[in-house]
Design a binder for these strands. Structure first.
Length: 352
DNA sequence: TCTGGGGTCCTAGGACCC
DNA sequence: TCTGGGGTCCTAGGACCC
């Protein structure tokens, strides 16, 4: 039997969260952005977007486009708190929920839907529930699979519900320019255009031998998706795979003391994250971007799992000394991965 | 304009082994 | 003197997403 998947996405999430915190921001153009020199916009609300302000745009440029722009600062704990409520509400409507990011999730509502006349009625109820209890607008995509549901929710923003049935792929999906397809970024879009593939339709009808040399194992999946086919399952269990903390320095520096201090602070933050997630890492990664913003990573396997900031720091410093001692550093980051989860560790401890 | 910060997944190439 | 073929694991980097 065909599944029914909802993709639910909070519109301009961080910006709307700021408006919940401070209702006087309502009806003003706002940008979530730290007030530091050289910072870039994290999220702009829809009013600011009408001025051309958008994510990743430098604040200085945004202020030129929209001098009345209100800069809110970034309050990540607030967003996490609201996100948790959002996910909890979504779970009321399905036992099968994939948390895709802080502001979006997929629901398998194949069973739930049997209690409703139409999928649209369920969507309307979820939308009302989220609006009444959290105060946020969402867009909802309804489709027989994950990929189409994601494409559908992107079609009407903010506050839209869009259905894409399998038989509507040609009319609703195919006319879109190729860069609108989820999973096709700037690089892939440029490569596809070189092959004269400009729309989703072009990709759907492309011969696999045309794109295989460029996209390798991805080629088949890309064509299938362009045809609206996706048999991937929802990932119900979300076990975190890696954690990292990084910071862009206001000025590039090769000063070892300065770098050590920043790195130590990042390691302490990383420890907090590991404790919160209940994980012990077996690998440490050092991330360094040089003065040209060129990214470099180095990793080190640990002999035993840890969440101790001193261990993180010691190993990150080893990696730094071995690879970057003469580099002028613009961004510094430390990450960890290859986790063992706390409950597994405590199970193992019982054996002794 | 001078560069967010946090993730996931994939791939190429080298090391190592049989 | 010249150099198989295949598999696995590890590392670094890249593409993409929010």
């Amino acid at each position: 039997m065909a599944k029914i998947i909802f993709h639910i996405d909070i519109n301009a999430f961080f910006a709307e969260a700021e408006t919940l915190r401070d209702p006087t921001l309502k009806n003003k153009p706002i940008a979530v952005c730290s007030n530091k020199r050289g910072s870039v916009i994290t999220t702009a609300n829809y009013i600011a977007r009408t001025y051309g302000v958008k994510s990743a745009m430098p604040l200085t440029e945004a202020l030129k486009l929209c001098p009345a722009l209100v800069v809110t600062g970034v309050h990540f704990e607030l967003y996490e708190e609201i996100s948790a409520k959002f996910i909890a509400l979504c779970r009321k409507y399905s036992a099968s929920v994939e948390v895709a990011s802080i502001d979006e999730c997929y629901l398998d509502v194949t069973e739930t839907i049997k209690n409703y006349r139409r999928p649209l009625d369920l969507a309307m109820e979820i939308r009302r529930d989220i609006k009444n209890n959290i105060g946020l607008d969402v867009s909802i995509g309804i489709a027989p699979n994950r990929f189409l549901a994601k494409m559908a929710s992107d079609m009407k923003k903010p506050r839209g519900t869009t259905v894409i049935r399998q038989k509507e792929v040609e009319s609703k999906l195919w006319p879109l320019p190729i860069e609108r397809m989820h999973g096709i970024g700037v690089k892939s879009a440029a490569l596809l255009k070189e092959l004269n593939i400009l729309t989703v339709r072009d990709l759907a009808l492309a011969n696999i031998s045309t794109i295989q040399p460029v996209f390798k194992r991805n080629a088949e999946m890309m064509i299938r998706r362009a045809n609206g086919e996706d048999d991937s399952e929802l990932e119900i269990e979300s076990n975190v795979k890696s954690l990292s903390q990084s910071v862009t320095l206001s000025n590039a520096t090769a000063d070892y003391d300065e770098i050590s201090i920043v790195l130590e602070k990042l390691c302490k933050e990383l420890q907090q994250r590991c404790i919160a997630e209940g994980v012990f890492a077996q690998q440490v990664t050092l991330i360094v971007k040089d003065e040209f913003f060129q990214s470099n990573t180095r990793t080190l396997k640990l002999s035993f799992p840890t969440n101790d900031h001193k261990e993180f720091f010691e190993n990150a410093l080893l990696l730094f000394d071995a690879n970057f001692s003469d580099v002028s550093v613009k961004l510094l980051g430390v990450g960890c991965s290859h986790f063992i989860f706390r409950d597994i560790i405590s199970e193992q401890m019982k054996l002794f």
